[in-house]
Amino acid sequence: MSEVNQIEQKTDAGREKSCPACAVAKTVAVKIGYSLVVLFIVTIVAFVGLRLAPGDVTTQIIDPARAAPGELEALRIELGLDQSMLVQFWNYVSGLAVGDLGQSLLTREPVISIVATAGIYSVVLALAAFAMIYVVAIPAGILAATLRGGIVDRAITLLASVMMATPNFVLAILLVNILALQAGLLPVAGSGTWRHLVLPAIVLACEPMGFATRLVRTSYLEQAGAVYADSMRLRGLKENLIRWQHIMRNALLPVISLAAVQVRTLVGYTLIVETIFRWPGLGKRLVDSVLTRDYFLAQGLTILLALVVVIATLISSLLYRAADPRVRTA
């Protein structure tokens, strides 16, 4: 209803901009609050979900076949697993509030220290992949768009499609076979030097890179044909100015939203890649903790990973607001 929209705008334009900073702070606060709610629900779901399964960690610590009668039960009480779910939940959440993530039920290590050591590896890997994705995708996408129809464009688009189609574990296999086993250029697995990072990062970045390239290309093409671009040419602005100041800025807006989505994808696929390359990150620890019913560790990791995704989404939406004035005053 255009009639209503017009009025909305007039009211907006007429309104006193009393405190723009306050408005921003308010929006940020609302978004953070919302994220916390989401995170809380995730916590509950993780908590309950993990406890749905039969059995618990005590069988991992003490072999039930050789346990003395009552020994398993005593261990259970010691670990606090006999209390009602509500009590356990309350204890956990109050612990969370002060930053205490509990201890691994299996190894008694504080979850925090596990997170710290393994977390660094995962972060390094993810960051490397993330950087790789955009350092390549943005220039490649723009290049393909500006040379539309030419051979460079077709090559880039094709390559991007192939990258999107290759499952990362398949790529891992191929690269390991060729580069590591045959040519001996890079180590097969493990960690320790920057060389160990190369293959996992490439494998992780491959599919998102292809997707991002195509998105940048499409977005750029869309903007290049926009009315304002022609209008600027008609006003005699230089083509380079139009391209770099205007088209590119508009074209990269969707990339901000995409980045958040890809963080989510990366967090998920890190698991597989870490397993293949035996990269000592959080992914492997998570799988193990779930399978051994090591609740606190599993919960802690779950919440942490969800937190990463939520933060990425939050940052992306704030960045988008900063970049696009239409969102700010809509």
């Binding site: 919302y34 709610v37 989401v38 995170l39 629900i41 995730v42 779901v45 993780a46 979900g49 993990l50 749905l52 399964a53 989510r264 994808t265 967090v267 998920g268 696929y269 698991l271 597989i272 998570l286 799988v287 779930v290 399978l291 019913r293 599993a298 779950t302 990973l305 969800a306 995704v309 939520v310 989404t313």
Partner: peptide, 23 residues
């Protein structure tokens, strides 16, 4: 919307892990 956001907060693969843990 909030259900979507909660579901979206958790990467699919990792949920598979959790479900694997359960069943």
């Amino acid at each position: 919307t909030i259900i979507i956001d909660v579901t979206w907060a958790y990467p699919t693969i990792l949920l598979a892990v959790v479900v694997a843990g359960i069943q």
